[in-house]
Amino acid sequence: MRLGSMWRDALSALVREPATQQYPFERLQAPEHLRSKLHWDLTNCTGCGLCAKDCPSDAIDVIVLDKKARKFVFRYHVDRCTFCSQCVMSCPKKCLEMANDEWELASLTPDDFLVYYGNEEDVETVLAAAASNGADASSTDTE
């Protein structure tokens, strides 16, 4: 039986820095295996769409413009992604990667959450098609 059994913590805290981290001024090092923004590499992709199929939150659209010419656009909805890295596991060609560098993903505009990967002219085509079909068409041209 003791009264005030945490007095030692209290006293030592007086001379210690508060445990609070003041985030924007003080950033912690991201751990090596942190799962942050998904990156896609066109080189080996076959456009099979397995990644999109297994994604639990519908965050990936693999848009196949021309399968023969390997014209693919990879549309990634950052806001939907739950960072489970199932797509990385599901991709048979190891095209996907979750690096630990880009983890401050908050944004004020929804547009920032829509990321297009792919050759520039292919992305242009997709964007143009989306613009002419209206915003809604974006979901129909997926794999």
Partner: peptide
């Protein structure tokens, strides 16, 4: 109190 609890306050 906050400092005793190792917080900023």
């Amino acid at each position: 109190v906050a400092r005793f609890q190792n917080r900023m306050g």
